[in-house]
Each structure stands twice: as C-alpha cells, then as structure tokens.
Design a binder for these strands. Structure first.
Length: 428
RNA sequence: UCCGGGGUAGCUCAGUUGGUUAGAGCAUCUGACUGUUAAUCAGAGGGUCGUGGGUUCGAGUCCCACCCCCGGAGCCA
C-alpha cells in the first residue's frame, strides 16, 4: 500500500491504495472514483472493458464514504485533481457506506454541526483543522526553543480565576468544584520553579454568548515570565504571534488555498505591532463619534474602528482598573489604570490575546481581592506567592480558535475546533 | 437577558390579497452514456408546512401562547 501524497514517486508502477470514497462519477462504460486516504485525493479510473466483472460490480457498490481498496497503475494526467490518477485493474469494497448525509452541495450550519462527526471529513474542514494542528505545534516549538517549561494546570479547581458567575460548577465528592477558566494562577505558582513557563489546554466559560467569536470550551496557551515587565510582555506577544503566522504560511500553503484565504495581509505580520494606550484610544474613538466614556471597556464596534486603521494586529494597553481583573498590577504612572494589554487581530477578528503584568505586592493584591469581593480564603495559596519571594512577572493568554480563525480567514471559530461546545450544543 | 431574522420533502429553498391535488433544485431509485471534475439527459417515489390553541365555509398563509435555530449586543480568548 502507498499513501496518496506519494503517488508522484510511483508513476508507471502498479500500486495499492486504501481509503474512503469521496465522490463517484459513472458513465456507463467508464467510471471515476475519487479516493481519500487522509494524505490526499486520488482519482481512480475504471474502464469496463479493462477491469474484471467482479471489480466493475464492486465499483457500483462503492457509495460515498465506503472504504475500498484499489490496485492500478499510477499515471500523470492533467485532468486528474492533484495531477496523478490510478488506472484501476482491481477494486474491492471493504465496507459499504449507507447513504451519506453530507452531499457535495450547500448545507446549513445547524445541519452541519449536527453531523460534525462526519463534517470533519470535508475538504475545508480538513484544511482548517490541519492549520489548527500546525498552530498548536508552532506554539510548542516557539516556547520550547525559548526555554519555557510546559506546566499542565488543573481543570478541576476550587478557586476562581476571574469573575464568578461564568463558571461551570460540578460536584466534587460533596464539595463545589469549577471547571478552570484559566490556568494563569497556577503558572504563576510554577514561575519561581522554572522562570519561564506556560500552560496549554482547554478552558471553560459558562457565558451565554452567541456570537461567532465564542465557545464555552476553548483552548488557550498561557505563558508566564519571571522578571518581565509589561513592555517585555508585549514584545514576547508580537514575536509569538508573528512566528505562528509565519509557520502557518510556510507549512499550510495548500490548506490556506483550499480555504481561499487571501494571505497578502498575513504576510505583513511581523514585529513591532502598533500600540495604543487606552486613554489615547478613547480620545480617538470620541473623535470618530463613539459615545465611549473613559473607564468603560471597549465594545466590539469600538475595537473594529481601531483595528480598521491598521494592517497589523494592534495592542491596546493600560486599561482602567475597573474594566480588568484583580491580579493586574497598578500602573505607577497613572494609578487609575493597570499594566495590561489586549491584542486585537486585524480584519475584524477581535481580541486574540489578553495579557498583563501581575500585582506582586501582597497588600495591594489582598486589597484588590477584597474590593472585588472575592472569597479571600480560596486565594490564600495565591497570596503565598507574594509572601515567599515575590517578584515582578507578566504573562498572557492566547485563544487558539480565534487565532486560527483569523489565520484561515474563516467566519466562525466553531469550525476551528474539532467538536465545538456551544451554549446549545453538547453533541456530537 | 435584550434586539433582529427564521422553522415547508433526506438537504437547500420558493409558495401572491386566505381558495381546488403544496412546488423547484440537489440527493435516492430506474434507464441512457468511454474522460468526468458538484458530469449530463429521461422517468419515478418522497410532505404531521416547529408544537398547541383560535378566527374562518376554507389556514403553509391571519391572531395568541410556547419550543427550537441563526445573527448581533453584553461578557470575554
């Protein structure tokens, strides 16, 4: 057996293939079966006079998605998708598929999501998920090369990362437990052990969001760096994002073509990225007619207005304290604000990173926990990190699906994860 | 939770001011065809019009309630 991606090396030879029937076209005395084996597509040509009766009869049972084996000679032909085809001498059906629900035509999103377990086989879905896999690999490679240690953080947690009310609650032997909505507090704990660390895994938000940018279960990478300030944090972010984009362009050119992605703007992505202070951003928005007031978080339309002005991702940094989480460090130059940044992707894809320098002063951190009325006891271990050798440190979280949606140019982040969990969707 | 759009064949949709037996394309089945690229051509089968109630001689169409889906807002990555 050979793999379809290697057919070019076997021209003139007789080879065996095994795979799933993607499409068939029959003309009475000649038939075309397009086979998919996970590495590519191969058009298999059957001529009635040249194959045995058994094989000709077999091809009639080769319905869409049936598993078949094929033996035949490889030849180059411009009429074949991929440039090579198989002149079939023998074909056998190993598993005949029932009538396949997903046809080569348009379907509604709801129907496709109901059939997500089958939809994965479609060409654009294959391409998108392959880009996702490449992005994930790029994330690990970049961080590994820079000396980060991967820390796997718990999914079942007792303490709360950010704001309550958006957590999935579960029973833990009679005690309340929550599905993690961030691994950040734990990577902060690992930071004094290894200096540079990151976690990578699923996170859970019970937000009742129904937009193309939200999932209830999504994957996030969260690097954390000891002795890095907010400025270094942003420099790491722009290097990181640029590397991920470059790797995708380099190794997923074929997939991006299948997805009809215009890559010209992605090719511009390299550091430095433009930076806009929150206070400047509000002024800019007011000039443009927005009704935003200083102190409020930026709305989705505000973000769109700001990113329209740039080809590159845009940092908006130093937001008001009131709009951000308790663990962010107060900005010494303007104590109304904290040292943090959001990275907004271009072309309307929105926030792909949220990052900050962390509050390393014990008293101020405890004060913020009280202000936010968070359960102080649950954070005692987190406060310990400020008792036993506190240190300046910064980190950020990058959303994998949003990043992949931007790189692939897909409208919906729900296509960027194999089995999306949405507010109204727990199956398949 | 709020705002907007929608639910008719397996799928994607059309369906006029309420009016005879609810239509099309694709898919399926039957037949024709030796180079197709979502092949083409001819024919056939296929419907609890989201659910419940109401108005009417008559409801897919009008009214009320509910359910579900999509898009957006808020929140966030």
């Amino acid at each position: 057996m050979v793999q379809i991606r290697d057919l070019g090396r076997h021209v003139g030879e007789t080879v065996g293939l095994v795979g799933w029937v993607e499409t068939t076209r029959s003309h009475g005395k000649v038939a075309f079966v397009v086979l998919r084996d996970g590495t590519g597509l191969a058009q298999c040509v059957l001529v009635k006079k040249q194959v045995g009766e058994t094989t000709w009869a077999a091809h009639e049972g080769a319905t869409q998605e049936s598993v078949v084996t094929v033996t035949g000679e490889v030849r180059a032909d411009d009429r074949a998708p991929g440039g090579f085809e198989i002149a079939v001498s023998e074909m056998a059906v190993l598993a005949e598929a029932e009538e396949y629900p997903i046809q080569p035509k348009e379907h509604g999103v709801d129907f496709l999501l109901d059939h997500r377990h089958l939809w994965l086989r479609s060409s654009q879905q294959r391409a998108g998920l392959r880009v996702r896999a490449e992005v994930e690999q790029a994330i690990h490679d970049f961080l590994y090369d820079r000396g980060f240690v991967r820390i796997d953080t718990p999914i079942l947690t007792g303490s709360i990362g950010e704001h309550a009310g958006t957590l999935f609650e579960t029973d833990y032997f009679g005690e309340k437990a929550y599905l993690a909505q961030t691994g950040q507090l734990y990577v902060e704990a690992a930071c004094p052990a290894f200096g540079k660390v990151y976690c990578f895994g699923p996170t859970f938000r019970a937000e009742k969001s129904k937009t193309r940018r939200h999932l209830t279960e999504f994957w996030m990478v969260e690097p954390e760096v000891a002795f890095a300030d907010s400025d270094e944090n942003m420099r790491l972010q722009e290097d990181f994002v640029s590397y991920i984009v470059e790797r995708s362009l380099e190794r997923c050119a074929e997939e991006l073509k299948v997805l009809e992605r215009d890559t010209s703007r992605l090719e511009l992505v390299r550091p430095p990225f433009p930076r806009l202070d929150y206070t400047e951003a509000v002024e800019r928005l007011k000039e443009k007619g927005s009704e935003i007031e200083w102190g409020a978080d930026l709305g989705a339309p505000d973000e769109a207005v700001l990113t329209e002005e740039h080809d590159l991702p845009l940092f908006v940094h130093n937001y008001p304290k009131s709009a951000k989480a308790f663990y962010m460090k107060e900005n010494p130059e303007d104590t109304r604000t904290v040292l943090c940044d959001d990275l907004l992707a271009p072309e309307g894809y929105g926030e792909i990173i949220g990052g900050s320098q962390r509050e390393d002063d014990l008293d101020r951190l405890r004060e913020r926990i009280r202000e936010e009325k968070l359960p102080e006891a649950a954070y005692s271990w987190y406060l310990d990190l400020r008792r036993y050798g506190t240190f300046p440190h910064s980190g950020f979280g990058l959303g994998v699906e949003r990043t992949v949606a931007w790189i692939t140019g897909r409208h919906h982040i729900r296509e960027m994860i194999p089995f999306p969990r949405l507010m109204n969707r727990l199956f398949p």
